[in-house]
């Protein structure tokens, strides 16, 4: 059986007035696949992620998503309630700045439990057990469950954000520079953790990064963007080892060898 794509984008464009955010982007994401979107700052990566996750409204084009019942739905046609349900159950969004994705005044357990309560969990003990279980999976000690994220280090906050998103077992997770602003050793551990969780849960991930090493480590396929357009797509190793476009060659050659 040939697997059907989970998410399909067709001809996505976004203009900010006269400026172009993103132009005529088409891509497909399959279940269990990690797709990296790379490019330099201002190339339209984050705009594309916003469009795919329906946080931004597209100027043209459309995004379709295969719901759990197998139906392929145009996201623009979903009602607000349906869309929000999708976002808090079937999707996750890991942001670059954990403060944007977490409730900083709410304990770690409350942060992880929020999605569970939103889908109707009403048993404190069960919610807490599930939260502790998830904190363990992202390597946060169980005795930190009642601390709020302000008491956490940058790496811990990012891991907490991941736990908060994965607790409802989403099928698709958007990540916007999840390792940005972390030092290299913390970054390495986080990447390891993400890779492990992705494999374990069979997640599909769309990850935006400017760091080609992150893309190399995590992604199966990648998309290279420049000036709002996709200029090259392909299997990650193929694109990185044998880049076709001059711009991609430049990107790859500008990576500092450690």
């Amino acid at each position: 059986m040939i697997e059907q794509p989970l998410l399909i984008a067709e001809g996505l464009s976004k203009n900010y007035g006269a400026r172009i955010g993103c132009r005529d982007v088409s891509l497909e994401v399959y279940p269990g696949e990690v797709l990296a979107v790379v490019g330099e700052s201002g190339s339209g990566k984050s705009t594309l992620l916003g469009l795919l996750s329906t946080e931004l409204e597209a100027s043209a084009g459309r995004v379709s998503y295969r719901l759990r019942d197998g139906r392929l739905a145009d996201l623009a046609s979903l009602g607000a309630a349906e869309k929000r349900l999708l976002m808090r159950t079937d999707w996750g969004f890991v942001r670059q700045n954990p403060a944007d994705g977490l409730r900083m005044a709410v304990s770690a357990g409350g942060n992880v439990g929020e999605r569970l309560m939103a889908v109707g969990w009403r048993h404190y003990g069960h919610i807490r057990d599930e939260a502790i279980d998830w904190l363990g999976r992202v390597e946060i000690a169980a005795d930190r469950v009642d601390d709020d994220p302000r008491a956490f280090s940058g790496g811990m906050r990012q891991r907490l954000q991941i736990a908060r998103n994965l607790v409802t077992r989403p099928r698709l997770v958007f990540m916007d520079e999840p390792t940005g602003g972390l030092d290299v050793s913390v970054q390495a551990r986080l990447l390891d953790l993400i890779r492990q969780l992705v494999a374990e849960l069979g997640l599909a991930v769309i990850i935006v990064t400017h760091d080609l090493a992150v893309a190399r480590l995590l992604s199966h396929r990648m998309v290279v963007m420049r000036h709002g357009r996709v200029i090259e797509t392909g299997i990650t190793d193929q694109v990185l080892d044998d880049p076709r476009e001059p711009y991609t060659q430049l990107l790859v050659s500008s990576v500092l060898a450690a």
Binding site: E114, M117, A118, V119, D146
Partner: peptide, 22 residues
């Protein structure tokens, strides 16, 4: 307003959760 409109009241329970946790 959006939360009320969609009857999304998980957040209210987050507050009660925090009470019990603390």
């Amino acid at each position: 307003r959006q939360l009320h409109a969609l009857a999304e009241y998980g957040l209210m329970h987050v507050k009660l959760y925090e009470d019990i946790a603390r």
